[in-house]
Design a protein around this nucleic acid. Structure first.
Length: 415
RNA sequence: CGGGGCGUAGUAUAGUGGUAGUAUACUUGCUUUGGGAGCAUGUGGUCCGAGUUCGAUUCUCGGCGCCCCGACCA
């Protein structure tokens, strides 16, 4: 993409109503636009990052048997009444709306009801199980107080997978696979070294759920981390009995602030019962399906990555999710340099490399500052010097390291 | 949902019961050209409503919106 064609611009200053680093940098860089409290639009650069994160999650979900679909945003009140979650006294942050004919609809708040209801129609035999459908979708929650930039909003984009298993052991086996998939995801998006699988409250059907908590001072949650084993416990479930059952020593735990970037939950028959979601086993006996839920908020994940990986000059995107792999920066206006930059741009595209081409007629300082802020991993500088040397000046965003590379070397590195 | 703070140009800020200022961004021109360059030039603003007043951006009330702390967070 040519930078001259991008309508967004960087800003030197963040709006005063944003105090969190993630929102400041994402707004300054032109990744997101704030519509209202807790509601953000994704601008071209931001969408590219979200799409990259989405693809990594998709690959990992598919790897463990996930099958992608899409449930509706408008929700039928009836299915929520089955689980007693329609009443505002039970779920107080619904967004609801009226139908012209007098009925009511809800805006998707979470997906358990939708999935249970759909799967009921297709699951009737042990031969139909297990299944692991998931979707990426917008979720709406009428939060009384939004906070922390894009980390906690009224509208957000998430991935939710639901597991439908025949019995506990089948469920548990998948649950363990999901943990690994989640760890892979957080590794691949660049925050694996800061993200811990954390014991959290489990509800009625299991002792614990598991959260994936990324350690950062701006986190909303407090976790207790055993640094040696990497085991963490959410403060909400920390007590002597739990410590004992997990074999942890309170003295060795370190208190940390963290952001919950994902969570997985055993649901047991909480939803199967109200929906009569059951199947016939080999003996023709009716059995309830065992469910689990597995969620990741993509916007929150993007915000977390910005929080933990940015520096004083701007965002430092990991290669895996950067809006572009390389930032080609043309300096100066002489025809030779321009020609070389144009040729290089076309060549890189031909080679399948995602490149952002700063072809604007602005000063070098501004281009460098923008490039730092936007945070594309590899910067390729084309200027008078480059024309003379027939090699490119390369700057690595994360390390700041500068090197010279030929076009061939560059292409093989970027591929 | 309790408490606190705040609404002035695209953005960041100053100020005033009587013509609203600065920076930046934007227009145009000249000079510049490897870390947000300089000079000149032009455009653009008091959240909404009511009240007090000769006159309100300023004071009062109401509304709307935003931020922060706490509670909540399936």
């Amino acid at each position: 993409m040519r930078q001259s064609q991008l309508f967004t611009k960087t800003r030197k200053e963040a709006p005063k109503d944003e105090v969190s680093k993630n929102a400041e940098l994402l707004i300054r860089g032109g990744f997101v636009h704030k519509e209202m409290a807790g509601v953000y639009s994704y601008l071209p650069l931001g969408l590219r990052v979200i799409k990259n994160i989405e693809q990594i999650i998709r690959e990992e979900m598919n790897e463990i048997g996930g099958i992608e679909m899409k449930t509706s945003i408008l929700q039928n009140k009836e299915i929520w009444e089955k689980t007693n979650r329609w009443d505002d006294a039970v779920v107080d942050n619904w967004f609801k709306s009226k139908l012209k004919n007098g009925g009511e609809v809800g805006l998707s708040f979470t997906n358990e009801e939708a999935y249970s209801n759909i799967l009921k129609q297709y699951v009737s035999s042990y031969k139909d199980l297990p299944v692991y459908p998931y979707d990426f979708k917008e979720i709406f929650r009428n939060e009384v107080r939004t906070k922390s930039g894009i980390m906690r909003g009224r509208e957000f984009y998430w991935k939710a997978l639901y597991s439908f298993s025949k019995d506990e052991s089948e469920h548990n086996a998948f649950y363990e696979k999901a943990k690994v998939a989640y760890q892979n995801i957080f590794k691949r998006v660049g925050i694996g070294h800061l993200t811990y699988e954390t014991f959290a409250s489990g509800g009625v059907f299991s002792k614990f759920s598991h959260e994936f908590q990324t350690v950062t001072p701006v986190g909303e949650d407090t976790i207790y981390l055993d640094e040696k084993s990497g085991v963490a416990i959410n403060k909400e479930v920390l007590n002597d009995e739990v410590l004992k059952s997990l074999g942890l020593d309170r003295e060795k735990l370190v208190e940390q602030k963290a952001i919950e970037v994902g969570n997985i939950f055993s649901l047991g028959t909480r939803f199967a019962e109200p929906f009569d979601l059951n199947y016939k086993n080999e003996n023709g006996e009716e059995q309830l399906v065992i469910m689990g839920s597995y969620g990741i908020g993509l916007g929150r994940l993007m915000g977390t990555i910005v929080e933990v990986l940015s520096d004083e000059n701007g965002i430092v995107w990991p290669k895996s999710i950067a809006p572009f792999r390389a930032h080609l920066v043309l300096l100066g206006s002489n025809d030779e340099a321009k020609d070389l930059a144009e040729k290089t741009y076309k060549k890189l595209i031909q080679e399948g490399i995602e490149v952002f081409f700063d072809d604007r007629d602005v000063r070098a300082g501004e281009k460098f500052a923008d490039s730092d802020l936007i945070g594309i991993p590899t910067r390729i500088i084309v200027g008078d010097k480059t024309v003379e040397n027939s090699s490119f000046e390369i700057k690595d965003r994360a390390s700041g390291e500068v090197s010279q590379k030929t076009l061939e070397e560059l292409i093989s590195e970027l591929k």
